[in-house]
Design a binder for these strands. Structure first.
Lengths: 214, 214, 214, 214
DNA sequence: TATGAATGAGCATTCATTCAT
DNA sequence: GATGAATGAATGCTCATTCAT
């Protein structure tokens, strides 16, 4: 009965899924610069089919990375239940690194702050959870106290960069990740240089699109 | 006869230098996506003048990043003289991070493995020095023994990612860098997962342009 | 059996009417450039429903403007009964102007000679009546004798142009219309240049789609 | 010597002229809707050649119609010298009609108020002259006193409409023009309906892009 | 029969690169 | 040797029209 609710949706949905799958794949592999016609070809549909579901390429990108963000958030939420506070925190970082290891578009969007409300909102939600994981791990004395939640996207983006470079099928990025995690431990922490970033500064930072000169 | 050639050469060389300077600036600021006409305009020359010296945009990019690679290598070589082995090593990493902080194209190329022989060669030379710095720092017991030279580009690229994201004028990236350095210290090192990467594997890795799926 | 067909027909007819209503509105408001999907949405039907009744957008346009032509003809026929021959004639012209003032598509089609047999036929019928109105008004000595029926569409189209330009809600076009009517009066008429257009010439003219060069 | 000032311009200018000529022709014939590729083909150049000289299609349209506007203005200025004030005025109207008779894009732009500063400015200049011609002709008692300068573009646009419809090579539009001119004469003028348009109203009118509903 | 998803050609525009001057 | 105009392929996107449901 529920099958007959949307008879049209039957092949429409199947096609949309083909588009999404093709986009997911293409974006993951080649980054957000793949052209819409390229995605259409991979999906075996015409360009206009894509534009029916996603009025703009931007929207398609947003939809795809949103999936990843959500998956990441689900995982991070689950990590809050971890008995060991450090392991909970590490799991989140690991997950973020893994995601970036297989999705180039995700990496790009983490780094370039796609200005789409839904994405922005999801990012905020993710950060709220990260803050909790951090607080827990710091309270337990395992995570160095001078790390703040805002460092995490930078760290993740950092891992993403390294992953992008390497053939991600090799386990190399896991070495790198372990290294970074060691740097985050309270154990042998050396004080970080400069003042801790204020929340206001970081907010402005999140706005900034790009532009480096010195 | 060299007298009649030189004058032209002088002109040409001056022009080439203008192109290189403009490209350096533009690439650092905007990344490798700046258009050739844009660079030509900045340099105050015609596009064809650029194409005389650099048959391809790719070549121009290569030339520019090569400069950075060389500067990096010079610096790394100097670091070999450092009394403190750890400081020598850390100086190299810091330098790499700083370079990426002010040169967006460099970051891109480190991350995307520009497939040009000269660049590749320079990369190898850099790595040879890195190997020495690492060996020294490990011998002195300050650098964790499970790090290999091949990890360095990945780490640098990682830092680059985080730098790209943040407004690089803020000191944020220096926090991240300090974090990573702490992770590299022998002090609180936890064993890295998996087998150490063999040299052969890494060679193949260097070849690979891209392509992640699982 | 007609009983079983009729119900469907009823549905179909109602749907068709919705389409026509939406098209009428959309064309009047926005001109013939509105997209078919847009009309479908206004009508609350699918595009294909439109294409069932009208194999081509052109046909839909033709159907809609045909309505206006018919309304115009009805009005013109009524004007034949006018006691005052001049007023009868003027009423027709006024009506044509008013139609154009509220229907952008009508204006476009009058100006661009939509090449559809039915439209063409209706145009001829209209002209036959115009001819009578003109004859009457000329016989009464009020309409200048050198005007021929074939001038009328041109005049109307002329008014349409001026109307299109002005915010049609302002009464401006009525000034213009009055001006033109004054030009049509026998009173102060100055002879028109050139030979009066022969019927044959005008027939060829009606054929011509476009093409001006000298 | 002046020939060698811009050796490059030699063929560049020739090519630009080809573009302009092709655009002039295409716009005149088909209106502003002709596609850029179409114009390029007519000109025998690539699309990008057009975009070198005209950053936007809008700019190309503006450039072309500006030519016509200027020609019109020159002519109108000359008409100010006419001994007979009425003939001066009539010459302007005739000229405007003739222009529209051979240039569909001009007609469109007169009717649709292309929002480009230069075009707008030229339009204003033209109107200033029209105002003088009108004042002169009214002072001499030949032009009806209730016409204002702002009526002229409407009248011209009106004539344009009628001209567009007819095969412009036939002299038909000249009949229509004569008719309209007769309507403008003081001789047999009947009072115009409604209040004369205030300048403020007309200014707002000029702003309005489109949108007719009642 | 009505739907609306799919199509592919078309549009305005940009860019790396080549060639006449 | 240097110029910058010309090229044509590519990009994101829209629309009239056609099918599978």
């Amino acid at each position: 009965m529920s099958a007959t609710i949307r008879p049209l949706r039957a092949d429409a949905a199947r096609n949309r899924e083909r588009v999404v799958a093709a986009a997911r794949e293409a974006f993951a592999e080649l980054g957000t610069d793949v052209s819409v016609p390229q995605i259409a070809e991979r999906a075996g549909v015409g360009v206009a089919t894509i534009y029916r579901s996603f009025p703009t390429k931007r929207d398609l990108v947003a939809a795809i990375v949103l999936e990843s963000f959500r998956a990441f958030r689900d995982n991070a939420e689950a990590s809050l239940e971890h008995e060991d506070a450090w392991e909970g925190f590490a799991a989140m970082v690991r997950r973020g690194a893994a995601l970036q290891a297989r999705d180039r578009a995700f990496t790009q969007v983490v780094a370039e702050a796609l200005d789409v409300p839904e994405v922005r909102a999801e990012r905020d939600r993710v950060q709220a959870i990260a803050r909790q994981l951090i607080a827990r791990a710091q309270a337990s004395g395992q995570l160095r106290p001078d790390v703040v939640a805002e460092d995490i996207p930078l760290l993740l983006s950092g891992l993403g960069g390294s992953l992008a470079m390497a053939d991600c099928s090799m386990g190399l990025w896991e070495r790198h990740l372990a290294l970074v995690l060691d740097g985050l431990r309270a154990e042998g922490a050396h004080p970080l240089p400069g003042p801790p970033p204020t929340r206001a500064k970081l907010a402005r930072l999140a706005q900034a699109t790009r532009g480096c000169s010195g």
